[in-house]
Write a protein that binds this DNA or RNA. Sequence first.
DNA 1: TCCTACCCCTTGCATTGCAAGCTACCTTCC
DNA 2: GGAAGGTAGCTTGCAATGCAAGGGGTAGGA
Lengths: 116, 116
Amino acid sequence: MPQNPQETTNIKAQMRKGVLELCVLLVIDRGEVYANDILQELRAAEMIVVEGTLYPLLSRLKNDGLVSYNWSESKSGPPRKYYSLTAEGRHTLQAQSGAWKELAASMNALIKKYSV
Amino acid sequence: MPQNPQETTNIKAQMRKGVLELCVLLVIDRGEVYANDILQELRAAEMIVVEGTLYPLLSRLKNDGLVSYNWSESKSGPPRKYYSLTAEGRHTLQAQSGAWKELAASMNALIKKYSV
DNA sequence: TCCTACCCCTTGCATTGCAAGCTACCTTCC
DNA sequence: GGAAGGTAGCTTGCAATGCAAGGGGTAGGA
């Protein structure tokens, strides 16, 4: 059943692996954001993401020194972690952005060559 | 050290996850091929692949009924498995190709929005 | 016979998206 | 004041999958 929606969803889920980190870096680069901001942005871009994916990713980015955060009070609810990119994070963003463009170019060339 | 070649290689390796299956389907769709043909095609397209990646992938595609193969004698060396797509394989190829285009569109929109 | 090239395959590991569930804080309502 | 609900952050366990490393079998030449 390769055509039903479920199957297509899984395919896209697999493809998202590896580019989610780039997406998150892109959003954080815009300015200070906290987790829910990122979730909303990525959902709007049809890069479906859930909390259980994002929090470990943010922790990993923090441990790798690509992002930093500071606590900030909220008017309605518990305090939030507002993230921003470090210099190394901006560096990595550039590298991943380039890697994406190369991958996309390779893929498009392949698809064109075998013209589906 | 997000800029050294090693790091960039890892980034691209992560991104390749999920699209390799599509690449292999694309190549097999061209006509009957065996493992080394596929490896050469994908390396030429800068989608670096090694045997340890390709063989399990081919086995999975076979188990999923997306490809079939027949043994064929070789002039120089052991017999080869020549692969071809099944009807379901062609179906999946279409689906994955569509999924790729959607993902690429989402990514490019994101990159453009935050214009790196 | 031994060596090289070719071909297929398996095992074990690391990464990572995700479902599911938990804790804690703040506001609102009774 | 206490309970309920929403907000925010996080953890655990699982599944998928690329890859390094290694194995074994066949053909042909030195």
